[in-house]
Structure formats: structure tokens, C-alpha cells
Amino acid sequence: MTTRVETKIPDQLWQQAQNMVQQGRINNMDALIAEAIRRYVESHQQILSERFIQEDIEWGLHGED
């Protein structure tokens, strides 16, 4: 299952991404964007999980259910 998204990307960044597709370094733009998002999510797992723990402590101490 996939989701259609509409977004604005800086021209220069878009051009760089298109060059990578044209050079055959990745199949198409859909694959490139999905890969970029996946890498972003993965690289932020540790930071995010620690941020969530901080949120948990705030909620535990002072939050409401």
C-alpha cells in the first residue's frame, strides 16, 4: 500500500535528486523519496526514543491521563 503525497522541495535539491535518478543510482524518484524518508526515520530513532522518554517523565510527574 502506498500514499500519494504532494510537497515542495527546493529547486536545487530536486535537481540533484533528478540527476541521481538519471544516472541510474536509484530506480525512480518515488524510490528515492521513500529511501530518504526511511533513512531519516531510522537515523532519528535514538534521538526520538530519548525524547519520548523525556516526554514520559514529564507526563508521569505532571501530566493528566
Binding site: 526515520v41 530513532q45 526520538l48 526514543s49 519520548f52 522518554i53 516526554e55 514520559d56 517523565i57 507526563w59 508521569g60 510527574l61 501530566g63 491521563d65
Partner: peptide, 24 residues
């Protein structure tokens, strides 16, 4: 973490083990 991110996208409140412990 991924489940919590998804919960955030859905507007669902989410907390973990540490939150439950401290809530006590």
C-alpha cells in the same frame, strides 16, 4: 519509537514503561 511516531501522526496519546512507572 516507530509506534509512537505513528500514534503522533494519528493524534493518539502514547506513553511508555517509564511514563507508567513515574505516573505511579
Amino acid at each position: 519509537t516507530a509506534a509512537r511516531l505513528a500514534a503522533k501522526s494519528l493524534g493518539v496519546a502514547a506513553h511508555g514503561t517509564l511514563g507508567i512507572l513515574v505516573r505511579a
